[in-house]
């Protein structure tokens, strides 16, 4: 997508990505995550050294059983098969929440087994559907072991990953919420890190305000972004809205993933953010998908490829 003499702006790349359509491959290169079309950018990226590629899936909603999808385990299975096909040398996968629809153990079991078939170590953050019972204890015990409140960080090939929980202790009239404890932890987690270290933040609800009337945003998300602004490359990956949206703000690139279960409407086009029920059966898979993210050191910029489950 880019070479040394003709480097498109990240905005340009992101604009391209808008048209790329459905699984995202994220590659982080030279501090800047980049996305590219599977089959085009991936081969190039694979030749680079120090690159990092990882996969993202989101919003499995195992337990949802209504129009337009009576078989969410089936579409998750298809998504995982697509991950296996697209993953290349991906180091890991992230799942950006709403693993289940109703936080039931049986739903967690099904999701755990199906996602496990990806063969990739998977890092989860909770969605609001995963913490409906007993403050999410069952979710945290299984999906974020060692992080009983659902936030944590780790490093992979020089990239710092931060998983955040913005789906609990929500306030009347508000949006997603991180809370003072988590923000204090984030500040501490980032303190002392080199500004040249690429950062990937993943959380369920978008950290930036997409559609406040539908609750698509995070009340104190801007405080988290302020802590991240000094870094040269920040990629924020979210789910929750079951559609692709992206924007770039300075060095921070935001991107949301499709669901593997059902699409939700574009803000302003429907009376509520509920499932789009009247999707024709032969169109459903074009509105579900996965992501591949690629980062190649020394090259511009980060690439995200969204790949749908079907045409």
């Amino acid at each position: 997508m880019a070479d040394a003499t003709n480097i498109p702006s990240r905005r340009k790349v992101l604009e391209c990505m808008t048209w790329a359509g459905a699984a995202a491959v994220w590659t982080v290169a030279g501090g800047v995550p980049r996305s590219s079309l599977i089959g085009v950018g991936t081969a190039q990226a694979a030749e680079a050294t120090g690159e990092l590629t990882f996969m993202q899936i989101s919003d499995s909603h195992i337990g949802f059983h209504a129009a337009p999808n009576m078989d969410t385990p089936g579409t998750l299975k298809e998504a995982v098969a697509l991950v296996r096909q697209q993953r290349g040398d991906s180091a890991l996968m992230i799942h950006t929440g709403d693993v289940s629809h109703l936080s039931a153990d049986s739903q967690f079991d099904t999701a755990w087994q199906l996602v496990g078939e990806s063969g990739l170590q998977t890092h989860y953050v909770p969605g609001e559907h995963d913490v409906l019972i007993d403050d999410g204890k069952a979710f945290f015990a299984r999906f974020t072991p060692g992080a009983p409140r659902g936030w944590y960080s780790f490093d992979e090939r020089g990239v710092h990953f931060v998983g955040l929980n913005n789906v609990q202790n929500l306030k009347a009239g508000g949006l997603g919420n991180l809370g003072a404890d988590q923000l204090a932890w984030l500040k501490d987690d980032l303190a002392g890190r080199s500004a040249s270290q690429p950062i990937v933040v993943f959380a369920h609800v978008p950290l930036w305000t997409v559609a406040p009337q539908w609750g698509w945003g995070t009340d104190d998300g801007a405080q988290a972004i302020d802590l991240l602004k000094r870094f040269g490359s920040v990629t924020v990956l979210n789910g929750h809205i079951h559609q692709i949206m992206q924007k770039v703000e300075g060095t921070v690139a935001f991107h949301t993933a499709r669901s593997t279960a059902f699409p939700q409407p574009v803000p302003g086009t429907a009376p509520s953010p509920g499932p789009m029920k009247d999707v024709p059966a032969d169109k459903l898979r074009s509105m579900l998908g996965i992501d591949k993210v690629m980062y190649v050191p020394g090259k511009q910029p980060l690439a995200i490829v969204d790949t749908p489950l079907g045409a």
């Binding site: 609001e128 789906v167 929500l170 009347a172 508000g174 609750g215």
Partner: peptide
């Protein structure tokens, strides 16, 4: 008595 939805708090 004011109330809201605990998972969609814009619902009041």
């Amino acid at each position: 008595f004011a109330y809201f939805c605990g998972i969609h708090p814009m619902m009041q």
